[in-house]
Write a protein that binds this DNA or RNA. Structure first.
Length: 578
RNA sequence: UGGGGCGUCGCCAAGUGGUAAGGCACCUGGUUUUGAUCCAGGCAUUCCGAGGUUCGAAUCCUUGCGCCCCAGCCA
């Protein structure tokens, strides 16, 4: 039965336990979920967690149930016309697809506005809803507080006829915004504030991106959401922890409407903890502030944890899905370490990204005993030894030209290196990767004493790529032939914030926590010539440095631009800091 | 000082009365022409605290403590 080779042990979680029990007990014979974003911003990695859960559930149970009995809908929760936009909807759809998921149906809460209106009239007729004409300040006052009960609105006992008439006139547009609202008639003294006659409809003379000017009354989330779920036949309605208090109201709505509406399902709401990540910001408000305040280049700035930003940064959908699986689903508020996300992309790219050589901060090296005009085309494998074995396609090699003058990384030379530094220094020998062994014989300094050129001699007796049997040369550094190098701009990205947690409270204070080194743009970087023709969005490992991707927007063959996705794990510089 | 939730290793997270999974991080050693990868090993006598029940408790009971959410005509 269980013969799959590498099916990663799907971690169970309390939601899957509930669904299993529901199926077992016959409470449901389908698993229908939904991902319900409000189209008023871009999706971020926190949404990815919800997407992986909701779409993942549908995918998982497809193994057990008939195709027609499991799906995940994409539903835009577009009940607030002032904030929502089609532009966001398009971006959201692109993000969900890019993450690798397919929705069963694509809907809008606004698809159901007419039904919702009808159900509202039903509630009024049943004495379960009334038009309240208190001002917003009065409503707030009448609601009481968490420790004191509220008191009934003076409009609470309007007759059904009057309520119906008022509500119809609200729809017709006879009133100004704020003059009246429709409220559920529940219990103004309920210990759960959400149950104190919650608002169902408010007047908004604003056109809606989907329904235009058809409506001037719009349903509130607590009214629209359960109805939308029930109409779509959702079985398990999954949301985040802050909606726990809303669940009682969710159930109230469904229970008071189901006999009349004959919904195809009796959905239940379950809550899980949203994702928090350190060294970044996740709230819609903060992301928006970064974008609108021009602290970043846009919603897809590679420093942002938005799906669009991660995509442009070079993250793969697989790595994000692996990350979401690795953090699990639970009910405890938690903050995941950014290192866990970074591990996931390194782990994925390790087997996907070809190795190439690029010098980011060039230092010229002249090999004095190498012939002036000679050029050798050396063979360099795209993949490390151990990886070739597992995949035939990863046996490929390219030629890299070697000549008398090459560039090496500034950091790979030290004038007075410690003994455990096995790179280049006066009198020291290193291997130029895939090429020769060179020994530093001299340096050239500028007026300020800075080393601007390193003089070396190479050992002509050791063939390129070969190891001398007698000597142990510990260091192997990357290099690029000076006259063959291709210039490029390389954008070194790092964590958005320099602090683990952004300062809380005070609206804009987190702006001060932005890591000034989150983007460091380098020009005049020297790439091996094989990179001259890379197309946008191609990923590589620049050996010994990290994973990089050609920028999808700015990189052109004539003007190469690479983004650093993530550095390689680096135990050397970590040890240095101690 | 109401109601709803949550507290298991530095960070996530299994576990639901039978004697603390796993991942990340970290540490040690091996391999290595990436100080990468890979491989081997280490890393909670203890589960927020205190009592109690039991042969036996992270799991049950009592009682403290801490944190999150709810008083938008946002979602």
């Amino acid at each position: 039965m269980n013969s799959s080779t590498s099916a990663p042990a799907k971690p169970g979680d309390f939601i899957r336990d509930i669904i299993d029990a529901d199926l077992q007990a016959g409470r449901h014979d389908e698993v229908i979920t939904r991902f319900p974003p409000e189209p008023n911003g871009f999706l971020h990695i926190g949404h990815a967690k919800s997407i992986c859960l909701n779409f993942g559930l549908a995918n998982d149970y497809r193994q057990r149930l008939p195709q027609s009995k499991t799906r995940c809908n994409l539903r835009f929760d577009d009940t607030d016309p002032a904030k929502e936009d089609t532009l966001f909807e398009e971006a959201i759809q692109a993000d969900v697809q890019w993450l690798g998921f397919e929705w069963g149906g694509l809907y809008h809460a606004s698809d159901y506005f007419e039904k919702m209106y009808e159900y509202a009239e039903h509630l009024i007729s049943a004495g379960k809803a009334y038009v309240c004409s208190l001002s917003d300040a009065e409503i707030k006052e009448y609601r009481g507080s968490v420790t004191t009960p509220g008191k009934p609105s003076p409009y609470r006992e309007r007759t059904t006829e009057e309520n119906l008439d008022m509500f119809r006139r609200m729809r017709k547009g006879e009133f100004k915004e704020g003059e009246h609202v429709l409220r559920a008639k529940i219990d103004m003294a309920n210990a759960n504030m959400k149950m104190r006659d919650p608002l169902l409809y408010r007047i908004r003379h604003t056109s809606h991106h989907m329904t235009g000017d058809k409506w001037c009354i719009y349903p509130m989330y607590d009214y629209a959401h359960p109805i939308s779920d029930a109409i779509e036949g959702i079985t398990h309605s999954i949301c985040t922890l802050e909606f726990e208090n809303n669940r009682e109201l969710y159930d109230w709505m469904i229970d008071n409407l189901k006999d009349y509406a004959k919904f195809p399902s009796r959905p239940h709401q379950y809550e899980f903890a949203r994702l928090n990540l350190n060294y970044t910001v996740m709230s819609k408000r903060r992301l928006q502030e970064l974008v609108e305040g021009k602290h970043v280049s846009g919603w897809d700035d590679p420093r942002l944890p938005t799906i669009a930003g991660l995509r442009r940064r070079g993250y793969t959908p697989e790595s994000i899905r692996a990350f979401c699986a690795s953090v699990g689903i639970a009910k405890a508020n938690s903050t995941v370490d950014m290192a866990q996300l970074e591990f996931c992309i390194r782990d994925d790219l390790n087997t996907k990204a070809a190795r190439v050589m690029a010098v980011l901060k060039p230092l010229k090296v002249v090999i004095e005993n190498y012939p002036e005009d000679s050029v050798e085309e050396l063979n360099a494998p795209y993949w490390p030894q151990d990886m070739q074995k597992e995949d035939e396609t990863k046996r490929t090699t390219r030629k890299v030209p070697f000549a008398r003058e090459v560039y090496i990384e500034e950091d790979d030379f030290m004038l007075d290196p410690p003994k455990d530094y096995y790179r280049l220094g006066p009198g020291r020998e290193v291997r130029l990767r895939y090429a020769y062994l060179v020994t530093c014989t001299d340096v050239v300094k500028d007026a300020s004493g800075k080393v601007i050129e390193v003089r070396c001699k190479y050992d002509p007796n050791v063939k390129p790529g070969e190891s001398p049997p007698d000597r142990k040369v510990k260091g192997a550094i990357h290099w690029v032939s000076a006259k063959h190098a291709v210039d490029a701009e390389v954008r070194l990205y790092d964590r958005l914030l320099s602090e683990e947690a952004p300062p809380t409270g005070k609206d804009s204070e987190f702006i001060n926590a932005i890591n000034p080194g989150a983007l460091q743009s380098l020009t005049g970087c020297k790439l091996e010539p094989s990179l001259a023709s890379v197309k946008p969005a191609e990923r590589f490992q620049f050996e010994r440095q990290g994973y990089f991707i050609s920028d999808v927007k700015d990189s052109k063959p004539s003007n190469l631009v690479f983004n650093r996705i993530v550095t390689l794990k680096d135990s050397w510089t970590r040890a240095q800091k101690k």
